[in-house]
Amino acid sequence: MIAVFSDTHRTEGHGLEGDALVAAREADAIVHAGDFKTESVLDAFQAFSAPLFAVSGNVDEPAITDRLPTDRIVKADGIRLAVRHRPNGGETALALFGREHDADVVVFGHSHQPTLVETDDVVLCNPGSHAQPRGNRPGFATVSREDDELQVSVREPDSTLIEECSSAVADDR
């Protein structure tokens, strides 16, 4: 299982609690779509046992932008994810970004709004913000694969389901 986060916006610690914290502790990989804010928050995410695959966001301090790319392609658990912070052109541009990289899922952030959109060939996932929802529901996501089926769920840290979807995934991942 891949645990997915974005828009932490903290100065200390990861701020995870409830099922979001459980997901990070039990994940095979962690993906973060940027806006940690400070290097100590990035370090808190890197302290989990699962590898962290992250991108920088628009509020990250220079020490983070020096360490992280703005876009990243991740292959974990037989799933290919394309990750960036800002949507840069909306759903059409995100879907194109995913197609260009043969991704199953495009992970993005910035709006703090948990969102899940199924397109013809890629799932768009904004996990929202677990720590600074800014008027939206707090959120995080999980992505998993069972045989040839991709499962994506967006939940609140207390496990309340926001959205979920499943779709076929290519066998060669």
Rank of each mutant, 00 (worst) to 15 (best):
E61T: 04
E163K: 14
G57F: 01
P51H: 05
D147E: 15
E146Y: 12
T70P: 09
V117Q: 08
S6I: 02
A50P: 04
N58Y: 00
I30D: 10
E156V: 11
H9M: 04
L42T: 05
Q46V: 00
R72T: 07
E39L: 14
V154T: 11
P51W: 06
D171M: 12
G78M: 07
V83L: 02
V123G: 02
V122R: 01
V143Q: 02
D171H: 15
S144D: 14
S153A: 15
G98L: 05
G78C: 08
S159R: 14
I2W: 00
H32V: 01
V143F: 00
A3K: 05
L150T: 11
R173M: 13
D19P: 10
K37S: 10
V31N: 12
E100Q: 14
A168Q: 13
T142C: 08
A29Q: 04
R134G: 02
R134T: 04
G15P: 07
E146I: 13
F97A: 04
I73D: 11
S167A: 12
E17M: 13
D102N: 14
L52H: 05
H14P: 07
N136M: 06
I73T: 11
F48E: 02
H32K: 08
F108M: 03
A29S: 05
P127N: 06
A63L: 09
V41T: 01
A23W: 05
L16R: 03
A93Q: 09
E91D: 13
A27N: 06
I162P: 07
D43R: 14
D7M: 01
S166H: 12
H130S: 14
N126T: 05
L94S: 04
V152T: 02
S153H: 13
S129H: 00
E164M: 09
P51S: 03
P133D: 08
L150R: 12
P114R: 05
V4I: 15
D43E: 15
K37D: 11
N136Q: 13
A33W: 02
H85C: 01
V143L: 07
Q46H: 03
N136C: 08
